[in-house]
Each structure stands twice: as structure tokens, then as C-alpha cells.
């Protein structure tokens, strides 16, 4: 005959469980404290590092990129906040400043490119605008991309459009480009002609007539493309943002 569990056994079990629980929270507490300590140390080191190399971070593009990569690897974004302990890095400020200048260049060139600018043109205009006083501050394309990404918090007014082969366009007017329209830009960039036509899209991208025409019409409606009806074979759609003389003007 099986013995039924006595009250004593139950109480013993209960006691054990409680002890386990206690031990568990003790360990947890321990770990937490350790984590806090580690974080504190890490923070101190990072602050140390950042303040020691603050100027280097600002001036040296290569160094800045590596620092960014390091931060990304440990899952922190030094741009995320201007407050808190990241602010001592002054990195945020660097990109905020860059962001403002990007907006300025985009607005200043909007009249000719309709709000679409190649990253290269943006960079050369921006460096020219920053002037000699800061000539030691190299600006790389990565910096610009990071800064433009920050501008996204203002809505979809600023977007980066990859057009292949390490090239980007920065769009500074509201209005999302859909995939097809992005492909159109990529095609124009790949051809290096600054224009595309319906037949190129139907031929190279295997689109049907309607799809090609829709995409092109939308680019015209957004003020990004200009229509040229004087070609002997068909209508051409030109992008001033990619037209060499416009870029250098």
C-alpha cells in the first residue's frame, strides 16, 4: 500500500522551493549588479575614448567610419540621441550639422533638378559650401548616408535611393518612389545617358508597355523627369539630376 504524502513532506517541499527562489533572485541580483558594473566601466571607457579622440572622430573620415562600425557591432547608435551620455561624444552634433547642410544644398538645387540629386553632386556642393574653414573635415559618402538617414525622422521628405554600383540619389521632395520608378532611375544611371525611354524599359527590363509608361509618367508628374519629343524614334525622358552639365552648373 502506497503511503500518502504527509503534511511534513509538503511543507518541506514548499520550504525547498522558497529557498531555490531566494537563491535564484540572489544570483539574478548578482548578475544584474555585475552587468551594471560592466556597463559603467564600458561607459567610462567609451566616454574616455570618445573625449580623447573627439577631434579625431570629427576630422578623420576613416576613423569616424571605424568608430561607427564598432558602435554598430555592439549594438549602439551614437546618433540616436543628442541627450544622455552619448552626447558627450559630439558625434550626433557632427551629423546634425551635416544634416542641416544637406537640406540646404538640396533646397538650393531643387530649382534645377526637381529635388533629386546624386550623392556625388551633393557631396561636392556640400564641401564647397562648408568652405575652407573646415577643410580638414573630410566628408565621405558614408557620412552623408548616415546623416540623410537621420533626416528621415522628418517623414518621407528625405530618402536615399540606391541606383546601383555604389551610387545613390537623394530625394528631397515628399513622395515615395515605388520599386518600378526606382528601377527606372537605376536604368538611367546604368546607361549613363541621363535619359530612358519606354522601349528601353520594355526591352531591357521586359516590362510591358503600360507598366513602362506608368512609371515614366509618374516621374514626369513628380517633376523629376523632363519630356523630350524631338528624338527621331520616340519620346525620351531626361533626368536633370544625372545630366552632367546640370550637375556642374
Amino acid at each position: 500500500m502506497r503511503r500518502r504524502a504527509g503534511v511534513g513532506a509538503i511543507q518541506k517541499q514548499k520550504l525547498e522551493q522558497e529557498k531555490y527562489k531566494e537563491k535564484g533572485s540572489e544570483i539574478q541580483e548578482n548578475q544584474f549588479q555585475q552587468m551594471c558594473k560592466q556597463l559603467e566601466v564600458f561607459r567610462e571607457n567609451l566616454e574616455d575614448f570618445a573625449s580623447k579622440h573627439k577631434n579625431e572622430i570629427k576630422k578623420n573620415a576613416q576613423f569616424r567610419r571605424q568608430f561607427q562600425e564598432m558602435c554598430a557591432a555592439i549594438g549602439v547608435d551614437p546618433l540616436a540621441s543628442g541627450k544622455g551620455f552619448w552626447s558627450v561624444l559630439g558625434i550626433g552634433d557632427f551629423y546634425y550639422e551635416l544634416g542641416v547642410q544637406i537640406v540646404e544644398v538640396c533646397l538650393a538645387t531643387n530649382y534645377k533638378n526637381g529635388g533629386l540629386i546624386t550623392l556625388d553632386e551633393l557631396r561636392s556642393k556640400l564641401i564647397a559650401a562648408r568652405g575652407k574653414a573646415k577643410k580638414h573635415q573630410d566628408i565621405t559618402n558614408e557620412d552623408l548616408l548616415a546623416a540623410v538617414k537621420k533626416l528621415r525622422i522628418f517623414g518621407n521628405g528625405f530618402t536615399v535611393i540606391p541606383i546601383g554600383k555604389g551610387k545613390w540619389l537623394v530625394q528631397s521632395v515628399p513622395g515615395e518612389l515605388n520599386l518600378d520608378q526606382t528601377l527606372v532611375l537605376q536604368k538611367a544611371s546604368a546607361l549613363g545617358t541621363a535619359w530612358v525611354s519606354a522601349s528601353i524599359l520594355t526591352g531591357d527590363l521586359r516590362w510591358n508597355e503600360t507598366r513602362a509608361q506608368n512609371a515614366l509618367n509618374h516621374m514626369v508628374k513628380e517633376g523629376l523627369a523632363w519630356v523630350d519629343t524631338q528624338d527621331t524614334s520616340e519620346t525620351l525622358y531626361w533626368f536633370p539630376s544625372m545630366f552632367a552639365e546640370c550637375v556642374s552648373a
Binding site: 523632363w226 519630356v227 524631338q230 525620351l236 531626361w238 536633370p240 552639365e245 546640370c246 556642374s248
Partner: peptide
């Protein structure tokens, strides 16, 4: 620059 931009004439 527009003078050499073909769609300028359309």
C-alpha cells in the same frame, strides 16, 4: 546648361 539639355526645347 539648359541650352544643351534636349528636353529644354520641348
Amino acid at each position: 546648361w539648359q541650352y544643351n539639355f534636349p528636353p529644354f526645347f520641348t
